[in-house]
Design a protein around this nucleic acid. Structure first.
Length: 422
DNA sequence: TCTGGGGTCCTAGGACCC
DNA sequence: TCTGGGGTCCTAGGACCC
């Protein structure tokens, strides 16, 4: 039997902002998505005001102003750095770890012998809080799905002090009856609706449903979730970082874009970003997809949302080649007269760079290209993103997304360190 | 006025092959 | 009126996650 601990940072983005700005404690705080669009992280105080997850900011702006809610744009440079620190601390407790997302990890607790699991988890919790300032909750169970449920209890019940171990509770029915079925990991809004219609309302109901029926309605992924609730581990710990099979870079614009020139700048910039990610995992790609979209929320405006993929003659991670292919596609899909609000680039057919088979008719000097990109990445890593960039991405970039409430990059930029007046 | 971005897995169905 | 069967590969789309 495996024992899994699920670690989740509480209100992660808000907690990151609070590290460097103590005045944000005990007060409602929200963080907005890219382009200051939707609410993506809320402090407990903001949750109590009824501010929902994922709501567009403009809908709750009045409520926020009235209640003096502190509002921030997403500062991914800061959150990414804090996340790395948290994960590094976790890896000191066990090497058997899956980095699941920016604020979550699964730890294999199977080899934590001779110790109280709850005690060990409490130690992890205290260490992370002390060394990073981030509060976390920990749930312990036999499967990943159950450990997520245990974590929710740990978060909600103050008496548990942030840790809940349900691995030794033989009959979990009383607990599972309290969990709405849509809170089970792997059950989203569509499946929840379907289950609701069939009178399956709680995790307990779902656990006891007929296996064949679940497989028919929700395929094998649904069945796995069901079995996991029964304590049968079906979703394994992914301890090794896998290479991405597709790499996306896309963003909404801060204003409508109608001209091909501005769209080209954005597509060039996004290609550049995707290519950086591609090289970071030592891969090359064989295809590139470019898409552009108008604002589908504006029903009365004329719409044009389209995209196209090109296969590359030779798989590559060389940014100039990728940009020229992307712009080639853009030129073919762009139509004059539409107000575009978003564009994106998606790299696919990805495989390791050492698998590259050169096309015999192409005589590019691969070594020079690699060395150029290597220098490019090094400079931007050391001196910060976009220290050098491609001219095709533009200088002013007036289409850039809105970030009206951004905080400083406290941990990664010398010019933005916290200053303390004594 | 204002509505995120970046991933994964699974299945159905079409094209194609022998 | 009858019109093979079985396999693979690829793609689009739908579900989910944070």
């Amino acid at each position: 039997m495996s024992i899994i601990a699920h670690i989740d940072c509480n209100n992660f983005y808000v907690s990151c902002e609070r590290i460097f700005n103590p005045s944000l404690k005990n007060t409602p705080v929200i963080i907005l998505s890219n382009n200051d669009g939707c609410v993506v992280s809320r402090s407990d105080e903001a949750k109590s005001l009824g501010i929902g997850m994922g709501v567009p900011y403009f809908r709750i702006k009045e409520l926020a102003v009235k209640n003096n809610v502190k509002v921030f744009s997403s500062n991914y440079t800061l959150y990414g750095d804090i996340s790395t620190r948290v994960m590094n601390l976790l890896s000191e407790f066990t090497p058997n770890i899956e980095y699941y997302s920016i604020d979550e990890a699964f730890l294999n607790f199977k080899n934590i012998c001779g110790k109280s699991l709850t005690g060990y988890a409490s130690l992890i919790r205290k260490t992370i809080l002390k060394n990073t300032g981030i509060p976390v909750s920990i749930g312990i169970a036999e499967t990943k799905t159950l450990s997520k449920i245990a974590n929710e209890f740990a978060k909600k019940n103050i008496k548990l002090n942030g840790v809940f171990d349900i691995s030794r509770i033989k009959n979990k029915d009383t607990l599972l009856k309290q969990v709405p079925v849509h809170d089970v990991w792997g059950i989203g809004s569509n499946y929840a609706k379907m289950l609701f219609k069939n009178k399956i309302l709680s995790a307990y109901d779902f656990k006891n449903s007929d296996e064949n029926w679940i497989k028919e309605k929700m395929n094998v992924t649904g069945l796995r979730s069901c079995l996991e609730l029964r304590g049968i581990s079906c979703i394994k710990l992914e301890e090794f970082l896998k290479s991405k099979k597709g790499i996306m870079s896309s963003k909404s614009f801060g204003k409508y874009v109608t001209e091909l020139g501005e769209l080209s700048e954005a597509v060039s910039q996004y290609t550049c970003r995707a290519a950086e990610k591609l090289r970071k995992q030592n891969s090359i790609c064989g295809a590139i997809h470019v898409f552009i979209q108008t604002n589908h929320f504006k029903l009365h405006e004329i719409q044009h949302s389209t995209g196209r993929t090109v296969k590359l003659n030779v798989p590559t991670s060389f940014t100039p080649d990728l940009i020229s292919n992307a712009l080639f596609v853009l030129n073919r899909i762009y139509l004059k007269g539409y107000k575009y609000i978003k564009a994106g680039v998606y790299l696919s057919d990805i495989f390791p760079e050492d698998h590259n088979q050169q096309n015999m008719f192409v005589h590019d000097d691969l070594k020079k290209m690699n060395s150029l990109m290597n220098s490019f990445d090094c400079i931007n890593n050391v001196w910060g993103r976009d220290t050098i960039k491609f001219a095709s991405s533009g200088i002013n970039q007036i289409w850039k997304m809105k970030m009206n409430f951004i905080s400083k990059r406290f941990t990664t930029n010398w010019n933005e360190l916290l200053t303390i007046k004594i």
